[in-house]
Amino acid sequence: MADKQIVLITGANKGIGFETVKALIESPKPYHIFLGSRSLSRGEDALAKLNELVPQTASTVELIQIDVTDDDSITKATEVVKNKFGKLDILINNAGAVFDNTTQFNDDIGKFRRVLNDTYNTNTTGAQVTTAAFVPLLLASKEPRLLFITSGIASFIGFGAPFFPPWGKLSAGWPKKDFVGFQGYKSSKAALNMLFLSWHHILKEEGVKTFCVSPGFLATNLGNQPDILRKLGAREPDVGGQVIRTVVEGQRDADVGKVIMENGIQPW
């Protein structure tokens, strides 16, 4: 294991997290990857699928239970990595969730609170607590990297454009009958971008390379609408895995401290 970089990816049993594991084990560079999954059974299914897709690899993959909304789960995962390796070279905060839906504009005012609180707890607070827990292990690495997976819809410039929302003009009247588009999700990712910047400044003197990665418009199961996303032009999730791999393997080191896109930098 001495020659392998130690990587932990949260939310890695499906979607972009799974595709990131796949992209890394396809690399000639050797890794030991902790495949983070909230559910052990779903994590085992992901491992079996990876073995089928990439039967030959220089890397190893180990399932680890981690729920970023559960402090005890995070602490236990930290202890597993610490006891086994005493360090972590790369932490990828990927776990995310969508709780928005098309019926949020109704008379149930409390639903707004539930949507935002649940979304922030996973996408923002979860990444914050996970990062804080693993920082000592990152600082034990000779080449530490810290990644946060964000979204194109977290861009203020992008969503300040006059064509918002991109799927058409909203009709007049209240409550809105149109799909208004992921208020909780996009605001949680905008908040995540600020957390990323904060960690970049906190850890840069220790030599930690910190990045935010915006994988692109991809047809993941986030929100359980992959087919609708494909109709809107979304590409397959493996594109995101390859983008993240370029950051892990140093091809985007000139852009440390920025939001990385496949081709260029995402505006704030």
Rank of each mutant, 00 (worst) to 15 (best):
L35F: 05
T124I: 02
D107Q: 11
W167Q: 07
A254S: 13
S187Q: 12
A46G: 11
I149F: 02
Q5S: 15
K111I: 06
G241V: 02
D107F: 09
L195K: 00
L229F: 08
R230V: 08
E62R: 14
A23L: 09
V213C: 01
R245L: 11
V129Q: 06
P165D: 00
T20H: 10
I16H: 09
G233N: 00
I90F: 01
T60N: 15
L50P: 01
H201N: 12
Q5V: 13
K142P: 06
L24G: 07
K22S: 10
F159D: 11
L137R: 06
L88P: 02
F196G: 00
G181R: 06
T130Y: 02
I6Y: 14
L8V: 07
E236S: 11
N101S: 14
L139C: 00
S187D: 05
Q225H: 11
N221I: 05
G17L: 06
R114A: 12
G17E: 09
S188W: 05
V81M: 07
F134D: 01
N123Q: 05
I149N: 04
A154E: 04
G207K: 02
F148A: 02
K4G: 11
L24P: 08
T150L: 08
F217G: 07
G257H: 14
V208N: 04
S151N: 03
S39L: 08
G240C: 04
G233I: 00
A46L: 07
T102S: 15
L8W: 07
S41D: 15
T210H: 02
L88R: 10
S214F: 09
N51Y: 08
V259D: 12
S188G: 02
R38W: 02
K4C: 13
L53S: 08
N123H: 05
F211K: 03
D107R: 09
L229M: 13
D238F: 14
A254R: 14
I74C: 05
I265W: 10
I6G: 11
V256W: 10
R230A: 12
L47H: 11
P215Y: 02
G160T: 01
L222N: 07
G207I: 02
P226W: 00
L147F: 04
F196W: 05
V180M: 11
F99G: 08
F112Y: 14
T75K: 14
G110F: 06
V213T: 03
I149R: 06
Y120S: 03
G43E: 05
P136W: 00
V180I: 13
E62T: 15
K76F: 09
L8D: 07
L147A: 02
A219F: 04
I64K: 05
M1G: 15
W174T: 12
